[in-house]
C-alpha cells in the first residue's frame, strides 16, 4: 500500500506496482487457460460448463478488479470504490467524524495488523486497511498527518 499525494488537498492509496503487475500476469495466464479450455467444451458434459464459468469469473476479477481510495480534504471525504469494469461497491467516510487513526494486531492472523479509524469510543473502530506492522505504521502516519488527525500506537 502506497500513499500518494496528488495535490495539497487530494491523495490516493495505491497498490505497489510489483503487486498490481504480478496480479495482472497471473490473471493473463488464468484467462488464457480458461480460453483454451473453453474451446474444448464441446466434448464435455453440461456441468463442466458451470465449473468453466466459475473459472472465467475468477480470471475476469483477477484482470479487472480495482480498488481506488481517494482522500479529498476540500470535501472532507475518504471514498473507497471497488469496481471490475462495472461498479461493485463504495464507501464514504467523512473526515470530520474521524477522531483518530489506530493500529491494532489482528487476533485471527499472525503478524497482520489492522489500520483502524476511531470515530467514537462506544462504536467499534472501522477496519480501514490491513498488512504488516511496518507497512501499516507508515501508511497510518502519512494518512493521519495528511488528514490532520492523531495516530495512536
Amino acid at each position: 500500500m502506497l500513499f500518494k499525494e496528488i495535490s495539497s488537498d487530494k491523495a490516493t492509496i495505491k497498490n505497489r506496482r510489483f503487486n498490481s503487475i504480478s496480479r495482472k500476469v497471473i490473471g493473463v495466464i488464468f484467462a488464457s487457460i480458461t480460453l483454451i479450455l473453453g474451446l474444448g467444451l464441446g466434448r464435455h458434459d453440461e456441468i463442466v460448463i458451470l465449473y468453466w464459468a466459475i473459472g472465467a469469473l475468477l480470471s475476469w476479477h483477477l484482470l479487472f478488479a480495482k480498488v481506488t481510495v481517494e482522500i479529498d480534504l476540500s470535501k472532507q471525504m475518504i471514498s473507497t470504490h471497488v469496481s471490475s469494469l462495472y461498479p461493485i461497491t463504495k464507501q464514504v467516510i467523512s473526515i470530520t467524524d474521524i477522531k483518530a487513526f489506530n493500529l491494532s494486531s489482528d487476533p485471527t492472523r499472525v503478524n497482520r495488523y489492522n489500520l483502524l479509524i476511531v470515530s467514537n469510543h462506544n462504536e467499534k473502530p472501522l477496519r480501514f486497511n490491513f498488512g504488516s506492522q511496518a507497512e501499516m505504521n507508515r501508511l497510518g502516519q502519512k494518512l493521519a498527518h495528511f488528514c490532520g488527525k492523531p495516530f495512536l500506537t
Partner: peptide, 29 residues
C-alpha cells in the same frame, strides 16, 4: 452518535461480484 460508517463489503456487493457469471454460463453453452 453520528451517522455510522457503512461497511465496504455487504451482501449486495458480494452478489454483484457474481454478476458476470450468467454471461459466462451462456457463453459456455
Amino acid at each position: 452518535p453520528s451517522k455510522p460508517i457503512e461497511s465496504l463489503w455487504n451482501s449486495t456487493a458480494w452478489l454483484k461480484l457474481l454478476l458476470p457469471l450468467p454471461v459466462f454460463i451462456t457463453l459456455g453453452f
